[in-house]
Design a protein around this nucleic acid. Structure first.
Lengths: 244, 244
DNA sequence: GACTTTTAAATGTCAGACAAATGATTTCTG
DNA sequence: CAGAAATCATTTGTCTGACATTTAAAAGTC
């Protein structure tokens, strides 16, 4: 682990990168303890605050965890699926909100990915996950539901569908695509008829999954994508007309 | 933006979270300047190093950028697709390497996602991206290529395929799945015959894309997945036999 | 007016100190 | 001797104050 004192990059950036490289390359293993801050500042010939800034950078990426006390220190952290989900969702949400990604683009990506899951989900979905889908469909039929709650339930339904594939890597990859759509969906107001259409399609998809019919689930998702995009197009058109 | 001085959480974590929340909620807009470190330390009633640690945490997540000098400071950063790709790849790679994810699980996820792209890619792939695919196929046919270079070219081919869908959100979501496989693929040694088989399948997929035939591309990917998994299974079986 | 110098503001880095947590050690007590 | 309590040492968390460096704007100079 070395840094270049002549580099124009901030020292804490360089130190963080050096440690990160050591982790990725396997020089530092999971749960292995890093040298103490004092030792690191000695090693890199920088002050302790600088080392600390580097360590905070790594902690922000869930690469290390720190512990106070006699046997404490910074330890290489095993990146959990849960942490990875959270990062993925934050990044996806910000990416969409900051880059003026069109509804259609995001929607297309989301449904393309979900269709990839559907056959696997049809083959392997657990009773528990199917029950979650049914429960969310039931919730979506309640008349008093706000638009936001309806969207949240929609997301929960789709997450159960994705998790039904029983592949944690797939679930992780899709967490962002599904969750990041929620803020966009929240811009839509759903009429009772819209809700009925969507909920019916959800039911059709759940039936297909339960029957182990991947192709039917894919077809259901295709229709749902069409419905969602049509709905969004109507909302945006109405909004444009009103402001004109 | 407030913090709770009685919380057990580190101050820098709380401050980072408070600022992050302000960004996500839209209280702070892209390119907006945050208060200076001195002002923030005044506002949160903490010292400047603590504020700095919080800002470094945010910088590590590409949420802010800092600039020195008279008109400098910390600015809310527009999360670029490029930054998001990089984060996604790092996270995915570490997730796979630290959690003993089986080759099959990762492979299944990757090909499921790629199949989701194939029809879109067949419909919209640019000449440029198709040329990249052909170039990588050509490279893969060179006899002197090391296994690592072959894998790298394989990744480049698949990235071009994914990018061909012309949907940046999709490309972002898949960057991790495609790139994170590389270290796993690097564990495999490819015989000349293996390479020929894989390269031929790549050619078939590229042909299908060029012909705008999404179904054929999907079929090609299915065969490629089968081939890859068979290859890996052989390698792992041989390794197990040798160690027994 | 154009160029140079100065200045002010901001981040980057350093040094040293104390607070707080926590496991290990030692001491005390029964 | 065993167990509980007190002490200690180590490490991270936080604070204070200072100086270095960068940068743009203001002031000065020809």
């Amino acid at each position: 682990m070395r840094i270049d004192p002549n580099s124009s990059a901030d020292l804490s950036v360089q130190i963080a990168q050096a440690i990160k490289d050591a982790i990725i390359s396997g020089d530092l293993n999971v749960d292995e303890r890093l040298p103490s801050e004092a030792e690191l500042s000695e090693h890199f010939q920088v002050s302790r605050p600088t080392v600390r800034e580097a360590l905070k950078r790594l902690a922000a990426q869930s690469l290390i965890r720190t512990q106070r006390g006699a046997t404490g220190g910074a330890f290489v952290k095993r990146l959990s699926f849960e942490d990875a989900y959270a990062q993925q969702i934050t990044t996806s949400t910000l990416l969409l909100s900051m880059n003026a990604v069109s509804f259609d683009t995001a929607c297309e990506a989301r449904y393309a990915l979900e269709r990839a899951c559907a056959p696997l989900s049809a083959a392997r979905c657990s009773a528990d996950q199917l029950a979650t889908m049914r429960a969310e469909i039931f919730r979506q039929q309640q008349p008093g539901l706000t638009d936001e709650a309806f969207c949240a339930s929609d997301v929960a339904f789709h997450r159960a569908l994705v998790d039904g594939a029983g592949n944690p890597v797939l679930s992780y990859q899709l967490a962002g695509a599904v969750e990041a759509m929620q803020p966009l969906m929240n811009m839509i107001t759903f009429s009772a008829r819209d809700r009925a259409t969507i909920t019916a399609l959800h039911g059709r998809i759940a039936d297909a999954i339960e029957a182990g019919d991947g192709a039917a689930a894919v077809a259901g998702l295709e229709d749902l994508e069409g419905e969602t995009r049509k709905l969004a197009a109507d909302v945006f058109a109405a909004r444009a007309a009103r402001s004109a």
